[in-house]
């Protein structure tokens, strides 16, 4: 592999000045000022993020009843050991991992290719960008309803496929065990690709034109330019896209909930980890502790997978 120079990369300059004793007071005042400005955000973070996280961590070690007289019964790791022996947890994990393994790579690749195409200077480039971005602006539950209509038994997709002769008879994409999860995958890819495409587009603006000009002089073709210049230079963006994709996909909930009506059926086909957590948190009373333990487990899984992905991506990057 040829190494690519990075003219756009700034050398890292340490911004912190060495402390000077006589300016100590001024600096203290400054940092106080800084904290004052941050106070609203810190408070909001504390109340709506940190305390709930801490509280659910605490709940995950208890059998808790939040109704009436709140009662906690400390049960140690029972919730966790129950979770590991729970067949439904493994099914949910399997479904979720399968979903992630399909959706994340595909959506990343499509987003990258579409961004590259829309950045290549074709006609009506801006119009296309706007159109492609529309699905991302729509709420995901509205998208699910539209999608269920499109792929329903009498919907346009089935009609088109049958009239062209690809299918002998319409397929019930949404309700058949073997298609339900796949339908959700297609839907989610369709809905999230534009968002990541926009991020890639922003990243593409940062790649210096000179690289492509140099490549042109060397006689590189479009594919070579894509794989040797665009992809490596976009590695940090790819990192971000993959991370966000992983987190989003592991938390898949609304589509699975709407399609199965909350049961995770048919025959556990759409049982995702978040749906499982929801069932224990809100559908069965008195299992909030177990739901919290599952949520913590999901956090651990997402964290581990994200770290592994980051590691792998870093090794391939040119930084």
């Amino acid at each position: 592999m040829t190494s690519v120079p990075h003219s756009n990369q700034q050398p890292v300059v340490p911004t912190g000045r060495p402390p000077k004793p006589k300016k100590e007071r001024a600096r203290k005042g400054e940092s106080l000022q800084g904290y004052t400005f941050m106070l609203p955000t810190i408070l909001i973070m504390l109340v709506f993020t940190l305390i709930p996280i801490g509280y659910s961590l605490f709940l995950s070690f208890t059998r808790v009843n939040l109704f009436g007289g709140v009662s906690f019964e400390f049960t140690g790791l029972t919730n966790y050991s129950n979770a590991l022996q729970d067949e439904r947890v493994w099914i949910a994990l399997k479904n979720t991992v399968r979903y992630v393994a399909f959706v994340v790579p595909i959506q990343t690749i499509i987003a990258l290719i579409m961004a590259a195409v829309l950045n290549s200077g074709i006609r009506f480039q801006n119009t296309f960008r706007t159109i492609y971005f529309l699905p991302t602006l729509t709420s995901s539950s509205a998208l699910t309803m539209i999608f269920m209509f499109l792929f329903s038994l009498n919907g346009p997709v089935n009609n088109a496929l049958v009239s062209v002769g690809i299918l002998p008879e319409p397929i019930n994409f949404v309700n058949e065990t073997q298609f339900a999860l796949a339908s959700i995958m297609v839907m989610n890819i369709w809905a999230t690709v534009p968002y990541y495409m926009t991020i890639y587009l922003a990243g593409l603006q940062d790649i210096p034109k000179s690289l492509y000009e140099a490549a042109d002089l060397d006689g590189a073709n479009a594919w070579q330019k894509l794989t040797k210049i665009t992809v490596p230079n976009l590695a940090p963006i790819t990192n971000y896209v993959i991370l966000m994709g992983l987190i989003g996909c592991f938390q898949l909930f609304d589509q699975a909930y709407i399609i199965s009506g909350g049961s995770g059926g048919p025959n556990n086909a759409t049982l995702t980890f978040s749906l499982l957590i929801y069932q224990y948190a809100f559908k069965t009373l008195g299992t909030m502790g177990y739901a919290s333990a599952l949520a913590i487990l999901l956090t651990i899984v997402i964290f581990t997978v994200s770290m592994i992905a980051r590691r792998l991506n870093k090794e391939e990057s040119h930084y």
Partner: peptide, 10 residues
């Protein structure tokens, strides 16, 4: 009900 509705379709 959750398990019944999950398994009966199969």
């Amino acid at each position: 009900a959750r398990e019944y509705n999950n398994q009966f379709p199969a």
